[in-house]
Simulated scan of single mutants.
Amino acid sequence: MNIIVVGAGKVGRQIIGELSDSCDIVLIENSEKIIEDITSEYDIQSILGNAVNVDVLKEAGAKNADIFISVTGSDELNIISSMIANKLGAKSTVARVRSPEYSKSAKFLSSSLNITKLINPDEEAAVQILEIIKYPLAKSIEHFANKKLQMVEFKIPNGSYLDGIDLKSFRKTLGYNMIVCIVERGEEVIIPKGDTILRSNDNIYVTGSKKDMDKFYDSINVKTKKIKKVMLIGASKICFFLTELLLNEKKRCQDYRNR
C-alpha cells in the first residue's frame, strides 16, 4: 500500500511508526531537520517541501497513492493539500482539522471538497470522555457504520438479571435488538450460540444501535452511581467539544423522560 503522510509532528510520527513496516510511505515535510530525524529511524522516502505545491505532490506520487494523510498544524494546509491530492488521483484522502468551525461542517466539507475523511482529534477525545462518563462499567467501546452501531465490552456484575439467561431468551427479555458477539469466561473465549448461558463475571461483547445500547446499559444492575454533575477545568478545544456533547446528552435524556 502506498501512503503519503504530510507533516511529521506527534501524529505524523505515530502514523509512520505504525505503518512503516507494512506500507510504502512517502513523507512530505518542510523541515529538513525533522526529515533527517525521521528517516534515520524509519525506512521511508521523504520530500522537503510544501504539500500545497502541485509539483511536490506529483513528486511524492499522489497519482498512485492509496491513502493521502495530511496532519500538519495548519487546518487549511491539510484541507487544501488533500483536495489537490484527490485531483491528482489519490484514492483516499484524510485531513486533520482542529477548528470547531471546520468540525461543525465536516460532512459538507468532505462531500463538497472530495476529502474522504476530516478528523478532529480533540473532538474524538471528547467523544471518548463522554463514553467513559456514560458507560463507567464498560471496558471498551467500538463504533461501526458511521457510529450508528456500537460494540461494548463489559463484565456482567453479580446480581444482574443476565446471570443465568440463555441467548435464545436474551433479545426477548430485553425487548430490543441486541447481539452478544463474544463471551469470555476466565481463560475461555466462547463464540455464543442460542443455548449459551450467560454467567456473572462473564466478559461479554454486545452489539447494537446507540439508542438500544443506552437502554441496555441502563437496565444492567450497575453498582455505580449515575453521574449527574461534571466539573470541567480548562478552556481547551477538548473542553469546548465535551461541553457541547454533555449539553446535547442532557437534552436527549430530558426529551426521552418527557415522552
Score class of each variant (00 low, 15 high):
residue 193 K to G: 14
residue 26 V to Q: 03
residue 124 E to Q: 10
residue 25 I to K: 01
residue 62 A to C: 12
residue 83 M to Q: 13
residue 64 N to L: 06
residue 238 I to P: 04
residue 103 S to P: 00
residue 23 C to I: 00
residue 200 S to F: 02
residue 155 K to R: 13
residue 101 E to V: 09
residue 243 T to V: 11
residue 164 G to W: 08
residue 75 D to K: 04
residue 104 K to N: 11
residue 160 S to Q: 08
residue 205 Y to C: 06
residue 224 T to K: 14
residue 240 F to Q: 03
residue 77 L to S: 14
residue 206 V to A: 11
residue 257 R to I: 08
residue 69 I to P: 09
residue 189 V to A: 11
residue 198 L to H: 07
residue 156 I to Q: 10
residue 92 S to H: 14
residue 223 K to H: 15
residue 165 I to P: 08
residue 170 F to V: 04
residue 36 E to W: 03
residue 245 L to D: 03
residue 247 L to E: 15
residue 109 L to P: 05
residue 144 F to K: 04
residue 212 D to G: 06
residue 166 D to M: 02
residue 41 E to T: 13
residue 50 N to L: 12
residue 205 Y to L: 14
residue 55 D to M: 11
residue 128 Q to G: 00
residue 120 N to H: 08
residue 121 P to H: 10
residue 175 G to Y: 02
residue 185 R to H: 04
residue 153 E to R: 04
residue 147 K to C: 00
residue 187 E to Y: 08
residue 132 I to Y: 02
residue 229 K to M: 07
residue 208 G to R: 03
residue 24 D to G: 05
residue 17 G to T: 07
residue 176 Y to N: 03
residue 169 S to C: 02
residue 29 E to N: 09
residue 236 S to T: 15
residue 181 C to D: 05
residue 164 G to E: 11
residue 159 G to V: 13
residue 151 M to E: 09
residue 193 K to E: 13
residue 192 P to W: 06
residue 12 G to P: 01
residue 230 V to R: 05
residue 131 E to V: 00
residue 73 G to T: 14
residue 82 S to N: 11
residue 142 E to G: 02
residue 192 P to N: 06
residue 163 D to T: 08
residue 250 K to M: 12
residue 234 G to V: 02
residue 187 E to D: 15
residue 77 L to V: 15
residue 25 I to A: 06
residue 91 K to A: 03
residue 191 I to A: 12
residue 111 S to M: 02
residue 157 P to V: 09
residue 105 S to T: 07
residue 127 V to W: 07
residue 61 G to W: 04
residue 90 A to T: 01
residue 118 L to V: 03
residue 56 V to C: 09
residue 103 S to N: 14
residue 257 R to Q: 11
residue 152 V to M: 15
